[in-house]
Write a protein that binds this DNA or RNA. Sequence first.
DNA 1: AGACTAATTGCGATGAATTCGCAGTTGCAC
DNA 2: GTGCAACTGCGAATTCATCGCAATTAGTCT
Lengths: 137, 137
Amino acid sequence: MAEPHELREKGLRLTPQRELVLAAVRDLGHATPEEVAEKVRLTHPGINLSTVYRNLETLENVGLVQHTHLGHGGATYHAAEELTHLHLVCSKCGSVGDAPIEAAANFVQSLADDYGFKTDVSHFAIYGLCENCQLPL
Amino acid sequence: MAEPHELREKGLRLTPQRELVLAAVRDLGHATPEEVAEKVRLTHPGINLSTVYRNLETLENVGLVQHTHLGHGGATYHAAEELTHLHLVCSKCGSVGDAPIEAAANFVQSLADDYGFKTDVSHFAIYGLCENCQLPL
DNA sequence: AGACTAATTGCGATGAATTCGCAGTTGCAC
DNA sequence: GTGCAACTGCGAATTCATCGCAATTAGTCT
Ligand SMILES: [Mn+2]
Ligand SMILES: [Mn+2]
Ligand SMILES: [Zn+2]
Ligand SMILES: [Zn+2]
């Protein structure tokens, strides 16, 4: 009675590529599909970029990973269990700071109360200037 | 002593294309570069898409327009003077609602106090579910 | 274990969005 | 009016993501 693998539990086939993509997302914290592919290639050099894209989508469909938008370009991926923070992205230096999601609790609540809008604060980054970049030069 | 045109005041050359791009952004409210080009072509059919891109960038550099990210894809442009609202984007139906920027004032203040982060709440949309899409089906 | 079937993969082609290089044109300072 | 740098049109190039398809493979059922 071996425990079923977490991917099997979600109804997904267990392929080395899929496991490696999930492991890479978990290891990397935030990662673009390119970065995930690079990481996976350390142990599985032949993996194709489209396989990475397809697995990220599949893993997102079953709730194991999620994407966010940290910058002007493409998405970055997180392990779902780790997506419990806000991203504070600096428009000048590009740094990505974290803040607990509770920092937005009142804001989220007031959007719900006043506009009936149920906010997902993690999907887009919070954009602005980090502390360093506000300093006079 | 004619008043200098607003574009000249910013140190920009006054070309028909540039004026039309700015006018289109102002007329359209939110617009993608494609949409701006379409609008401009109503009166200036020959305008090239790369000219639109270049002018949007130039106009943004002098502060007359600004871009925001409303969805997973590319940017949309606003006249700068009009960018005084939040965008509430529904992940399900795609609707874009507005909310006054003051709705985020407390949130912005607390990010400044607690993290030294100076937030630009309009650059990314606020993502979530609109009132309609929360209704049970 | 062996066979079957549908899901998954690799790969190259394709598509969409944006940027670039350059030759020709044009705004504007003189 | 002249001259020059800024700007434009145009086609090519980039970048990022998706697609089609034939070959492979995971999981199921004898
Ligand atoms: Mn942006
Ligand atoms: Mn998204
Ligand atoms: Zn910074
Ligand atoms: Zn909706």
